[in-house]
Amino acid sequence: MPRIRESTLQEHRAKTLDQIIAAAEAILRTGGRGQLTMAEVARRANLARNSLYRYARDADQLCDMVMERHLPDWGQALDQALGRTDDPRRTIEVWTRTNLEQAGLHGHGWLMNLYAEQHDEQLRRALIYGSPSNPHEPTSRSDRSTDRQIQALLNFHRQVNQPLIQAWTALRPADPAMGVEVTRGIVQSGMRLIDALDLDLAPEQRQERLTIIIEKVTACAKAVTATLTEGPACA
Rank of each mutant, 00 (worst) to 15 (best):
R90E: 15
L154S: 04
D18R: 14
A14M: 07
R125Y: 05
Y129A: 00
A126S: 08
P232R: 09
L228F: 15
A167G: 04
H108Q: 07
L100T: 08
R54P: 01
E6T: 11
R97L: 04
L52M: 07
T96K: 02
T37F: 04
T85V: 13
Q61K: 09
Q149N: 15
H119W: 08
H12G: 03
L164V: 04
T211Q: 15
G231S: 02
M191I: 08
S51N: 06
I165L: 09
L9I: 08
S142W: 09
C63H: 07
H70M: 09
A59D: 05
L17C: 04
P132L: 12
P88Q: 03
T8E: 00
R90V: 10
R184L: 13
G190A: 09
G32P: 01
L199N: 11
I4V: 15
R158E: 02
E6R: 11
A24N: 02
R43E: 15
R5L: 06
L193G: 14
I194N: 01
G185E: 02
D64Q: 12
A116I: 08
L52W: 00
I186P: 00
V66W: 02
Q118M: 10
L28N: 01
R49T: 14
G107R: 09
E40C: 06
D64Y: 07
H136Q: 15
G130P: 07
Q188V: 10
P138R: 11
R206G: 03
A22V: 10
H119I: 13
A116T: 06
N99M: 02
R209T: 02
M1C: 09
H136N: 14
E101K: 12
V180D: 00
G83F: 06
A22S: 15
H157V: 01
P163G: 01
R57F: 01
V187K: 00
A196Y: 05
S51F: 05
E25Q: 11
Y55N: 05
G34I: 04
Y53K: 12
E204F: 13
P132K: 10
R192V: 07
V182N: 01
L71F: 14
Q188N: 09
T169C: 07
L105T: 13
M112F: 12
E208V: 04
R43Y: 11
N155P: 00
T146R: 14
I92W: 02
G31N: 05
C234R: 14
D79K: 13
R3P: 03
H108M: 01
G185L: 06
S133I: 11
A59W: 00
Q35N: 11
R43V: 07
R69W: 06
G185R: 03
P203A: 03
H157Q: 06
T85N: 11
P138G: 03
G104Q: 03
R192P: 01
P88I: 01
D73C: 09
T91A: 07
R184S: 09
T37C: 05
G75V: 08
V187I: 13
A202S: 08
Q205C: 07
A39I: 08
R144A: 13
D143C: 12
D60I: 08
Q166I: 07
T16K: 00
L100Y: 06
D73F: 05
E93H: 12
E204W: 10
R206C: 05
R54T: 14
T30M: 03
